[in-house]
Amino acid sequence: MKRVLVVDDDLDILELVQMALSMNGYTVQTVSKWESMDDTIHSFRPQLVLLDVSLGTADGRDLCRKIKASPETSSIAVVLFSANIEMQKSVGECKANSFLPKPFDLQRLVKTIRDAMPE
């Protein structure tokens, strides 16, 4: 089964995304505190991380760079998501696989995850 880690400090979004992806056949783990992301990546071993750009004291783009820079995690697909559409310009510079603007509909969420998910 395909594993997705969702990192967002908004608990409502975590619940909604977990429900939508689970209903579409994904195993989903959620993290509301970015500080837990590394440990969760190593224990859960996701194929894709759906990562909010604005995480309070952290920038999801920096976390994405860290994921992509490590030989252990560089093959994990990263989809950034944000309410700030301007953040889409950052996808290439932090090596994210895709960007999903908030708000999003659930069909677009699932399609974005499916398209970015490694085989």
Rank of each mutant, 00 (worst) to 15 (best):
9 D>F: 05
9 D>W: 08
10 D>M: 13
10 D>W: 02
11 L>M: 13
11 L>S: 14
14 L>V: 02
15 E>K: 11
15 E>A: 15
16 L>Q: 11
16 L>I: 11
16 L>H: 07
18 Q>T: 11
18 Q>H: 13
18 Q>R: 15
19 M>Q: 12
19 M>C: 11
20 A>E: 14
20 A>T: 13
20 A>S: 14
21 L>N: 03
21 L>F: 00
21 L>E: 03
21 L>G: 01
22 S>F: 12
24 N>E: 14
24 N>M: 01
25 G>N: 06
25 G>E: 02
25 G>K: 05
26 Y>A: 09
26 Y>R: 09
26 Y>Q: 11
26 Y>P: 09
27 T>I: 05
27 T>Q: 13
28 V>D: 01
28 V>Y: 02
29 Q>E: 14
30 T>A: 12
30 T>K: 11
31 V>G: 03
31 V>W: 06
32 S>F: 12
32 S>G: 15
33 K>M: 02
34 W>E: 14
34 W>C: 14
34 W>T: 13
34 W>L: 05
35 E>S: 11
35 E>C: 01
35 E>I: 05
39 D>N: 11
39 D>I: 03
40 T>G: 05
40 T>Q: 12
40 T>C: 12
41 I>C: 08
41 I>D: 03
41 I>A: 10
42 H>Y: 12
42 H>P: 00
42 H>D: 09
44 F>S: 03
44 F>K: 05
44 F>I: 02
45 R>L: 02
46 P>N: 03
47 Q>Y: 04
47 Q>S: 15
47 Q>W: 07
47 Q>I: 08
48 L>D: 06
50 L>E: 01
51 L>C: 08
51 L>H: 06
51 L>E: 08
53 V>R: 01
53 V>E: 02
54 S>F: 05
54 S>H: 06
55 L>Y: 07
57 T>F: 00
57 T>S: 08
57 T>P: 01
58 A>Y: 15
59 D>C: 10
60 G>M: 06
62 D>V: 12
62 D>E: 15
63 L>H: 06
64 C>Q: 07
65 R>N: 14
65 R>E: 14
65 R>I: 01
65 R>L: 11
66 K>Y: 13
66 K>A: 15
66 K>V: 13
66 K>T: 15
67 I>C: 06
67 I>T: 11
68 K>H: 07
68 K>S: 01
68 K>M: 13
69 A>W: 12
69 A>F: 11
70 S>H: 10
70 S>Q: 10
70 S>D: 15
70 S>T: 00
72 E>D: 13
73 T>A: 04
73 T>F: 00
74 S>D: 09
74 S>Y: 04
75 S>G: 06
75 S>F: 04
75 S>R: 12
75 S>E: 12
76 I>V: 09
76 I>Q: 13
77 A>T: 12
79 V>E: 10
79 V>C: 13
80 L>R: 05
80 L>Q: 00
81 F>K: 00
83 A>M: 04
84 N>K: 06
87 M>Q: 07
87 M>R: 07
87 M>N: 14
87 M>E: 10
88 Q>I: 00
89 K>E: 10
90 S>G: 02
90 S>C: 03
90 S>N: 05
93 E>R: 10
94 C>L: 03
95 K>C: 15
95 K>R: 14
95 K>A: 13
96 A>I: 00
96 A>P: 08
97 N>Y: 03
98 S>D: 15
98 S>N: 15
98 S>R: 15
99 F>E: 15
100 L>C: 01
100 L>E: 03
101 P>M: 01
103 P>D: 04
103 P>A: 07
103 P>L: 02
